[in-house]
Every structure is written in C-alpha cells, then in structure tokens.
Nucleic acid binder design. Structure first.
Length: 491
RNA sequence: GGCUCCAUGGUCAAGUGGUUAAGACACCGCCCUUUCACGGCGGUAUCAGGGGUUAGAAUCCCCUUGGAGUCACCA
C-alpha cells in the first residue's frame, strides 16, 4: 500500500475556525496514524479575500496545536511550490485547463456578467414570515460551448475577457465514494458547468484543488461536509483528466447551539479566540477531536500522541456535532488541574498580574486557584479580593450550616483580634494555631470560628482558599485592617 | 425551491439483528469539607413517527416528519 499523504489547504483569510482546525487535525491524524505525510498548502487564489498576516496565523496555529506538517511552503518535499499563487505564476493551472479544452471537457466562455444575470432565477419563500431568505440561482446554459473555433480565436485575439468552464455531460450520472457517507450519485443535469479559470486568470478553488491534489500525490482528501455537493464535479474532472481519484473523507459539520454551521459571522470562536478566552491549546485539540469521532477505549482526555495511536477514520460520525462550550470548559479545567505546576504558573501569571498589583505571593494565589478554574479568564473574578477588600453586605456573615450570624461573628472577631495583633509571623501554621486554639477553648464548631474570619478578610461569600491561606497571603497589616473594618461594620 | 446528506437523552456519544441501550458534559441529591471548588457515591433523561422484513429490530428496507449542507469569476 502506498504511503498516505493528506493535506491541509487553508486560505489565508483570517483566523482559524474550529471547523477548519478539526479538518486539519483529522488530516494530520489520518496521515500520522499510518506514518504518512501531512502537507500544508496555501490556497490564496482569491486575492479579494486575502488578509495580510493570515499565513502567519496558519503557521502559528499549526505550531501551537502540534499539527506539524511534513511538507509545506517552508519545507520543500519535492512537490512544491506549496503556495497556489506561486503555482499560478508558473502557469500550471492554465496549462491543465487547456488540456481539458483540447479534450472537449472544458471550454472558453465569453459571457458577460450581464448575460449571466439574465440566467438567474430567484427562489425562496416570499410568504414565509420567518426565513424569507431569497436566493438567486444560476445554471449556465452552455451558450459559449457552441462557439466555433474561429469565433473563439477571434475573441481571444481581441482580448475579450474569458473564463474557462468545465463541460459537464447533459446526460448520465456521476458517482463517487466517500469513506464516511458511502456511495453518492448525482444526475449530471444537476451539475453546473463550473468555472475552472477565472477571468483574472486565476484558477477557482475547485480546479486548483484537483490539480494540486493530483500533482502532490494526495491520497486522502479530508475536508468539510459542505464540499460534499461539489464533489461530483471533482469526480468529472478526475475522469476527464484520466487521473485516479483520492479517497474522500468528508467530515461532519460542526455547528453552533442552533445547529447551524459555524461561521465567522455566527460570532463563533476561532482557535485564536479560544486561546484569548483562556483555553489551553491541548484541550482545544482534544475537544475538537471528539467532535464527530470517539475512540474504542472510553477515554476522553487524550494527548495528540494518543489520538494518533487510536484514530481510525472509519469510525467518524455522519451527523453534525454541536460545539458545546460547556464541555470544552470542563475539559479545559481537567487540563489545568493535571498541568505541571510550572507550566501552569507561567500561563496563569499574566492573568493574575492583571488584578494583583500589590506585592503578594503570586505562586500561592496561583496554587489556590488551580483546581477551581476552568479557563484562565476565571482567575480574575476569583482573586480580586486579595488586592482589595470589596464592599460587602454583612448579611453574608449569616450562614445556617455554619451556625453563624452577624452577632456571633462580631464576638468571634472581637475576641480574636488581640491574638492576631500579638502574632507576628503570619504563616499558615501560626494562624491555624491561633484560630484552632480559640475554637477549642470556646468549644465551638470549626465553622463557627472560621467562617467569620474568612468572610472578614475576604469580604466574599466564597473564596479560593480558607482563612489561613488568605490571611497568610495578605499579611498581618492587611488582615488586621480588614478584621477591624469588619468589627466596625458589624457593630 | 432543486439536489445531496443526516436522525440514540439538553449536548458529545457507544452500539452494527438478541444489551437491564455504555460512558462523558450539564442538571439534581448525598458524602467529604472552614466557604467555593476538587474528589467520591447515587439519580433524572435517549433510540423522531408510521409501516414493513424477521422467530427476534436502535440496528435492514420504505414512507412521513424534522434538521442540515449546497446551488458564486468564495474557499
């Protein structure tokens, strides 16, 4: 069996959306599972949509997720160039398009936009109150197919703008096979004579894709389900060229909560957005891998290596999957909890420093919060009280389960204040000692003694860490000040 | 609207003719506990509907319904 070669072929149009990332991931996993090659190809045939810097984003994303390509613009594997605009410059696409013209499988078309406009027919529900989405549909009428050789020559000589269209037979059906969806047949009459070469000379995505996949010896084409309906046209192209078709793997769509395809516009996250939202790269990859596929073993938390080991594209689901942020959050929390401390600390530090300006033990704060956050962005609201005592309502001193009230709390704080004043070394142990001694003397429940203190020094109903940790972190001066303030409030 | 695809809990999903229909997230309860988390234990909840095929259907076929994708000189 030949070595598997898959490719990831993004367009440099902005950030990497999760659907795109998932496609890249699967392409990578399929190749790596079989020790094959993963190729990166930049599809920049649309100069209108080209975004400056987008290529860098692609590199950074691949780097960040660990989807390392074996070949690409920066790693020549003998099938370059790997950037379509460079391939275009070499005249590759036009050359192949002309081949098809020779064979009668494609033809020059000189129709104006205006004429094309007259071919449009409008569909859509005018009476539908809800979704009266009106669409225009064009099916080209093969008008230029019947131009004589002389007419074509003349127009070309006169520099009449032209495109090259695929000539799809009027009769018969076209069938292709997809690994996930099986055999799919479409009547040829349903297929439009799609444009292969645009009037600016550039190839369309569909054409460039076929030519490049063939030239780069791609064995498995991994792409989103949205391409399923254009695949028959690819099949025709392969057949017209006399090339062997690759194995198609159309991944199920990733949708939003409304079960609609994720798109930039739906305000949904790209990989970069997710990083900004405090997610860990590994968690994103892990989560996305499980959208549409699940391993034989019931494992959910899987490293990229484990994914490579277990991935089997025959087990990919057909149905679209909803991108569930809640579960991503959970998974991210798992990654954070299991993360080695130093790595965690370096990632968490910027978020901590955003709120903590005072000279506090940031490592300690980071530790307290490690098992409590799901994303790094959760840190902020959790630790703000270390920096400054929030304004709080004394109602929070009342806790039924702790058996505390504002009155009982006042008593505890007043009695404890002198002992805290007497204490110099605010280590956790010392503080614990002071408090527990007091609790034993008074023969009260732990909660009765601890709740008022934690509340007083934090001003919050819930906090990461307890009384000892908090006091030890904010130190003597601040602790006393907060307790005094509490006594004042409660009096 | 045409074409194509899809259909197991709220979500991700196992399942491939015989199961008490896994597991995870979420939700609820209990335990642990100085709060909140973490952790542990338990619970609610799924085969869209209708016909077949079969001794037996979540699994095979058909229809209905519902949903999605696509129909560009965008990818």
């Amino acid at each position: 069996m030949a070595t598997i070669r898959t490719r990831f072929a993004p367009s440099p149009t902005g950030r990497m959306h999760v659907g795109n990332l998932r496609t890249a991931l699967y392409a990578y996993l399929i190749a790596k599972h079989e020790n094959g090659s993963f190729v990166l190809r930049i599809e920049d045939t649309d100069k209108e949509r080209y975004v400056e810097g987008a290529v860098d984003i692609i590199y950074r994303t691949l780097q960040g997720t660990g989807l390392i390509h074996d070949e690409g613009p920066d790693k020549d594997g003998g099938y370059g160039p790997y950037v379509q605009s460079e391939r275009f410059a070499k005249g590759i696409y036009l050359e192949y398009a002309k081949q098809l013209v020779e064979k009668g499988a494609a033809y020059y078309c000189f129709c104006s936009k205006e004429r094309l406009g007259t071919l449009k027919s409008t569909i859509g529900s005018e009476d539908g109150d809800e979704d009266n989405e009106v669409k225009e549909i064009t099916k080209y009428d093969k008008h230029c197919l019947h131009l004589s050789k002389e007419e074509i020559e003349e127009k070309l000589a006169n520099k009449v703008p032209f495109v090259i269209r695929q000539n799809i037979p009027v009769q018969g059906t076209t069938t292709f096979k997809d690994v996930i969806f099986g055999e799919i047949s479409v009547k040829n009459e349903e297929l439009d004579d799609m444009i292969l070469i645009k009037s600016d000379g550039y190839p369309t995505y569909n054409f460039a894709n076929v030519v490049d996949d063939h030239l780069m010896k791609i064995t498995h084409v991994v792409r989103g389900n949205e391409y399923l309906s254009s695949t028959p046209k690819y099949t025709r192209l392969y057949q017209d060229f006399g090339w062997e078709e690759p194995v198609y793997i159309h991944c199920p769509l990733i949708t939003n909560e409304e079960h609609k395809k994720l798109s930039k516009r739906s305000g949904h996250s790209s990989y970069e957005d997710l990083l900004e939202q405090g997610f860990v790269s590994e968690a994103i990859v892990n989560f996305v891998a499980l959208l549409g596929w699940s391993p034989q073993s019931n494992k959910e938390i899987m490293s990229l290596e484990e994914l490579i080991e277990e991935f089997d594209y025959n087990n990919i689901n057909k149905a679209p999957a909803v991108f569930d942020m809640v579960k991503l959050r959970w998974m991210n929390g798992e990654y954070i909890k299991n993360m080695e401390f130093d790595k965690y600390y370096s990632l968490a530090l910027p978020y901590i420093k955003e709120v903590i300006k005072k000279d506090l033990d940031l490592r300690k704060i980071a530790t307290l919060v490690k098992t409590r956050i799901e994303t790094f962005c959760d840190i902020k609201d959790m630790i703000d009280f270390f920096e400054e005592l929030p304004d709080y309502d004394i109602a929070i001193y009342t806790h039924k389960k702790m058996k505390t009230t504002a009155e009982s709390s006042l008593g505890v704080l007043q009695e404890l204040l002198p002992r805290f004043e007497a204490l110099d070394d605010y280590s956790e142990d010392n503080i614990e000692n002071v408090i527990m001694t007091y609790i034993k003397e008074k023969e009260i429940k732990n909660g009765q003694g601890l709740w008022p203190i934690r509340t007083a020094v934090s001003g919050k109903q819930s906090t990461p860490g307890g009384a000892y940790e908090i006091m030890s972190i904010i130190g003597k001066e601040e602790s006393l000040s907060r307790i005094k303030k509490a006594i004042e409030k409660l009096s």
